Amino acid sequence: MRLLILGTGKMANRHATSFAAIPGVHLAGAVDTDAEKLQSFCDKHGIERRFATVESALAWGEFDAVANVTPDAAHYATSMACIAAGKHVLCEKPLATNHAHAVEMADAADRAGVVAMVNLSYRDVAELHAAREMVLAGRIGTVKHLEASYLQSWLVSSAWGDWRTGPQWLWRLSKGHGSNGTLGDIGIHILDFVAFGSASQISDVSCRLKTFNKIEGDQIGDYVLDANDSFVMTAGFDNGALGVIHATRWATGHLNELRLRIYGDKGGIEVQHGHQASHLRVCLDGDAETATWRDVAAAPVATNYERFVNAVRLNIPTEPGFRHAADLQRLLDLASLAEMPQPRGKQKKMTRLNAYRMS
């Protein structure tokens, strides 16, 4: 499979390294408007063909698939161009910056008959797959309640770099630079973590968003620090279950950690995933009487990169696909309404969005 890397930022290095490790995959070319960054990236990964625009790469056309690692706001236009040219696409999350564009992308991919996958990277967590299999097998009975969180600490820790001086962090804090804050950046990950792990579709949401003061004036250079930092969401599920989902960048002591707790009428499952390790615990059968939790090992699973390559080779759909990502984007759009300015005298930064349903 001949692959084009579209965008050569930090995440593109993971794409290039992961794809190059798969037998039979050739990194055919790369695209970036920043010539210096493009040259450095291609030299590092041994990529010969280099393009300043997606149009010039498509005019060349000697590739089968695209890894779209452009900024969020560019996903729609660049993916649509690649799909129109008959190229398979693995797009970074979120699929688009709004639900309407995400649906257009899913529809276009269906019409073109190409493999269209979104890199919701926590699908690579083996423990999440094991949890889903237990839910589907009925091990915990009917799912009743869920609790999930995505915790990061980079606003209170320099472990990943100083957000005050690094453009790779500052843009995530600024709506004017294409950010939808914590909700758009990691919200889509935790929503997918919940829906996939619990084998349950989210049907409705209520959400509160908060943007905290960080520095005097809340602006650094061209970056206005106005994107949300934390959200707390309640969710209803199509099976009648209720859940609480929250995320923040202020979680001191948690570099990058996802948690999911699933409770049914016969047992419970807990998944924890962090930088160093993942854990799966269950309370099943007779252990429910004594509240005894036991660790469970999970079998390895294929990565998104491996699943994408296999799907392209077989020309079959694979998940997580564009349609699923569009469904998640609708939830994010609805939750984003909570940040819209309210009439004078009303609270502007924290509002409640009641029971917007997926249809």
Results as ranks from 00 to 15, higher is better:
149 S>I: 00
128 L>Y: 01
145 H>L: 11
166 G>I: 00
112 A>K: 03
126 A>F: 08
138 G>W: 07
165 T>D: 14
161 G>P: 08
113 G>M: 10
113 G>V: 10
109 A>D: 04
155 L>S: 02
166 G>C: 04
143 V>Q: 11
146 L>V: 09
161 G>E: 10
166 G>M: 09
143 V>K: 02
131 A>F: 03
142 T>S: 15
119 N>K: 09
151 L>I: 02
107 D>P: 00
108 A>Y: 06
152 Q>F: 00
132 R>T: 12
116 A>N: 07
124 D>W: 02
134 M>K: 10
143 V>Y: 06
104 E>D: 15
154 W>C: 01
150 Y>S: 08
132 R>Q: 14
103 V>S: 05
111 R>I: 07
103 V>C: 12
132 R>S: 07
141 G>N: 07
145 H>K: 14
137 A>Y: 11
105 M>W: 12
166 G>A: 10
125 V>L: 14
125 V>Q: 09
152 Q>L: 12
105 M>N: 09
116 A>Y: 11
143 V>N: 01
102 A>Y: 01
113 G>F: 06
138 G>D: 14
119 N>L: 06
135 V>I: 15
138 G>V: 06
133 E>H: 06
130 A>E: 14
119 N>W: 05
105 M>L: 15
143 V>S: 02
102 A>C: 14
119 N>R: 12
154 W>E: 06
115 V>M: 05
106 A>L: 15
130 A>K: 05
155 L>Q: 07
155 L>Y: 09
142 T>K: 15
111 R>E: 13
167 P>T: 11
124 D>C: 10
155 L>H: 05
142 T>C: 04
135 V>Y: 12
106 A>H: 06
158 S>P: 00
106 A>E: 13
164 R>W: 01
148 A>W: 00
163 W>V: 03
158 S>T: 13
134 M>Y: 02
155 L>G: 09
139 R>A: 03
135 V>S: 11
103 V>I: 14
139 R>S: 03
137 A>T: 01
141 G>Y: 03
142 T>Y: 10
132 R>W: 06
135 V>T: 14
127 E>V: 12
104 E>H: 13
152 Q>C: 10
151 L>R: 11
114 V>L: 05
134 M>E: 08
112 A>G: 02
146 L>K: 11
127 E>D: 07
121 S>R: 12
131 A>Y: 07
150 Y>Q: 01
112 A>V: 03
159 A>S: 07
132 R>L: 12
125 V>M: 14
148 A>H: 02
112 A>W: 11
112 A>C: 07
161 G>M: 13
126 A>K: 13
139 R>V: 00
103 V>Y: 13
107 D>M: 00
112 A>P: 01
152 Q>W: 01
117 M>W: 08
145 H>E: 15
161 G>F: 08
122 Y>P: 00
124 D>P: 01
133 E>P: 00
144 K>Y: 01
